[in-house]
Every structure is written in structure tokens, then in C-alpha cells.
Design a protein around this nucleic acid. Structure first.
Lengths: 231, 231
DNA sequence: TTTTAAATCAATAAATAAGTTGTTTTATTT
DNA sequence: AAATAAAACAACTTATTTATTGATTTAAAA
């Protein structure tokens, strides 16, 4: 039986993510010592809203869904987490609790990295910090969009927005719609499942989209964008 | 609107668990400051095998299932976690990772308590420490039983053992069997789902148990105990 | 080697969950 | 107060998961 030793090179290649490429060998070593790899099965929670957060998650493979939990069984989906993305960045710098839940929608390989290490490296490596901040901002922009959606738009605009968002993931993840239920889509739009079903049918009748089993193909991007903008 | 302030008394009563009753007011305050309450929905993971553990969980209400994950989708169920029980105690004293997963089988209210606080209190309050150790030992005994089961017993003995264990929870949780699938039961016994189904039917024919929908009633405890002992 | 134990495979039945549709109720806006 | 938007409800269909059974293969023990 061959013993497998993970070299720095392996580690970097393994995670071939731009943000890790800019680390010095010592910094890579630091991360490597502070990280552990965990297999999440489809359906497992990566983070739980309200739980203490002592680490940041970095998704290597697989997809997850980030959401905030309300009363009883209500959820609002925020985004799809893709390989190469971090989860729980805010835990590093501010709160020591996760402020959202996330769940694997396919099996996932994930690095958990202790937050002190991330914080240390950010302090000594400007480019790494820059990258982290950039990601953090992107997530924030998305969050504001969602907030605007929820506050000002009504059903049609929200579902159009959701469809455009999910469709934008199709390059990287063509099967994205197969992984989501109507309830998931409704929870992205912040509307009831029944309303989501009805709107999808109505969009189909208006030739804005085409429904094939679970897959959804966008046809009339212009109109969808307009509906999304107008609300 | 009335502001609700949680007093020490509320906190203690709320968790009416023997082990917290022996704390001094200062210690209660320490725990209270270091804890957060989280609602887990049925199906949510309380702990994930391999993830960093910075806190201990204390189940207030609801039930969960503790299990170890193997390759692909194989699991071995270890125990049912009941209200008043801790999860992740080993994280406090030794490893800084959870060595098992657990998942809510009903909605759960859980306190997460930062492990440094638990460690501090154990050091200054002997009775509390004693209690924690006792719980830890109980879990360990259970673990050895499971190991013995897996190593020496065969199907009949294992499923008899599983049935006796689950039946012992019926006082506190009469609906326990309704909450478990055949796969769950099989995963407690460490056998295939199909074998579990066949054995249950065969036990029923031999008048050892009675199957009503999902519920299982033990009839012949003597024989079941014997089967469990003999293996 | 033979026997036994138990997993795996395959096919089907039963139960549960997801999706769909029309109607009614409840907010919200005008 | 009337009109509109969207949730909630109810009834139903379809899909998926879970449970069951018998047959076959694999592994372990005698």
C-alpha cells in the first residue's frame, strides 16, 4: 500500500482557484495546516444559520444552495454556491456566527479552513486580501439585488430575475434546473410554490421560456430582462 | 410589545437538565454568555463528521440521530439523541473535529455552547465535571456495545439488539419507530435494508414482535434478549 | 469443500413527496 | 371602496422514494 503525501503543489493544483495561486509557499503551508477536507453528501448542511462559525468553507467540487431561514419551514434562497467559492467569509471578520444556512444540492468536497489562518494571511498578503474582499463584495451586491427584489418587485419581476440568475449558471452547470425543485425556484423568487408553477406556465405560453421536464430554457431574454427590470 | 429578558432562572428551568442545576449563578452566567440557541429543522445536520468543532451541542427539545459515515452512502447509526443530552462532548477535551455526524429526525431546539466555557466550568466545578464524564462514559459504553455487535454478532443478534435499544426509548418517545425508516433500522443493526425487512417479517412470524404500519411492538422480550446475547 | 450467512440484484408494490390547477381568502394598492 | 396581487387552500396527478420479495452472487465459517 502506497502512502500518499499531499505536497504543496498537489494542494494548489487540487483547488485550482485563482485566489490560492498568489500565496507564498509558507502561506500555502499555513492554510494546509489549518484546513481539513470534508465530504458533504447531497442534502447535508454546509452551514447552519445561527451556529458558531470557527471556520470558512471553500467548495472544491459540487454545488450548494445558500438560504436564510424564516419561521417554520419558510426559506429564502440567496445563491448557488459553485466550486471555487467561499462560504462563511463574514464569519472571519465580523460575526462569529453563520448568518445563513447552506445545503449541498450535489455531493460536495469542501475544505474547512480555520478562520484565524485566513485572517492572518489576509493581513500579510495584500493580493489575497484583495481577492477575498472582492468576493465578499460580489456576494454583497447579490444580496442587495435580492433585497431590492423582495422589497420592490412583484411576482413576475422576481421570477424573471430568478430565471435569469439560474440561467447564467448554465455555462458552468448545464444541469442546474434539474437540481432544483419548483419550491426551490419559488424560494429564490420569494413567492409561493403554486405561484411559481403558474408563472412558469404563463411565461411558457408567452414564449418567453420553454419547459422540458425539469429543465428550463430561456428564449426571449430581452422581454425577461424587461420584466425583471420593471418588476 | 413586551421585551423578553431571559433570567438565569429562565435559563435553568428552560433546560431543566440535572447537570445544569448544580451550577453556581456565576457559572450559569458563563454558560449563558457562551451559548446560542439554534432551531434545527427535521433533516438538518447538527454535526458533520470531520468538521471543526468549536462548540458542544445540548439538545433542549426534539430528537436526532447520531451516525458515522462510510464510503458513498453507507452509514452506521450509533444512537438516538434525546432532549437533555449533549452532542460533541469529545470535541471539548480532545479532538477539535466532530468524529461523527448527526441529523435532526424531528425539529430540534439546541443550545450551542462554546467549548472553552464548558472546559472552564468543568475545571472549577467538580460535580459538573463528574456529570459530564458520566455522560461521556455512558456514550462510550454504548459505543463498545455497537463495536461488539458489529464484530461478533450476526444479523439476528444485531437486529434483536437494535429492536431492544429502540424499544427502550419508547417510554420517553412512544413514536420512535414512526420516525425511522427500514433503512434507519438496518443502519443501526449494520445490515442491508433488505435483510432488515426480511428479519422483521421473520420475527413477526415467530411472534417475537408485532408490526403495525411503521410501529414495532416487542412481544417476547426473553427470546429477543437471548437472540441478542447469543448473536 | 460444503454449508451457511448475508449482501446484492431485480422486479414490484406501497407510501410519500412534488407538481399542477382552479378557487377562495387575505393583503395591498389605487 | 374597488381593484389588484399573491398567498392559502383543496383536490388531484405525476414522480420519486421507500418497502417488500424472491433469486442470485459473494464471502465467511465449519
Amino acid at each position: 500500500m502506497k502512502t500518499i503525501l499531499e505536497t504543496d503543489q498537489d494542494f494548489i493544483c487540487n483547488i485550482n482557484a485563482p485566489c490560492f495561486q498568489m500565496l507564498s509557499p509558507e502561506e500555502v503551508e499555513l492554510i494546509r495546516a489549518a484546513k481539513t477536507q470534508v465530504s458533504f453528501r447531497k442534502g447535508d448542511n454546509l452551514t447552519k444559520q445561527g451556529a458558531f462559525a470557527s471556520y470558512v468553507l471553500f467548495v472544491i467540487t459540487g454545488l450548494a444552495k445558500q438560504y436564510i431561514e424564516g419561521d417554520s419551514s419558510k426559506s429564502l434562497n440567496l445563491r448557488i454556491i459553485k466550486p471555487g467559492e467561499f462560504v462563511g467569509l463574514s464569519a472571519v471578520f465580523t460575526k462569529n456566527k453563520f448568518n445563513y444556512s447552506s445545503v449541498a444540492i450535489t455531493d460536495c468536497q469542501v475544505y474547512l479552513i480555520e478562520k484565524v489562518s485566513i485572517a492572518n494571511i489576509v493581513q500579510q498578503n495584500g493580493m489575497f486580501g484583495f481577492n477575498i474582499i472582492k468576493r465578499y463584495c460580489e456576494q454583497n451586491v447579490n444580496l442587495f439585488d435580492t433585497l431590492r427584489n423582495m422589497t420592490y418587485k412583484q411576482m413576475n419581476g422576481r421570477i424573471a430575475d430568478t430565471l435569469l440568475y439560474l440561467d447564467s449558471l448554465k455555462n458552468q452547470t448545464p444541469e442546474i434546473f434539474q437540481l432544483l425543485s419548483r419550491k426551490d425556484i419559488a424560494d429564490f423568487a420569494g413567492i409561493s410554490t403554486e405561484s411559481a408553477v403558474k408563472l412558469l406556465k404563463s411565461f411558457e405560453k408567452d414564449n418567453l421560456i420553454a419547459l422540458h421536464e425539469k429543465d428550463i430554457q430561456l428564449i426571449d431574454y430581452n422581454t425577461l430582462n424587461e420584466i425583471s427590470r420593471k418588476g
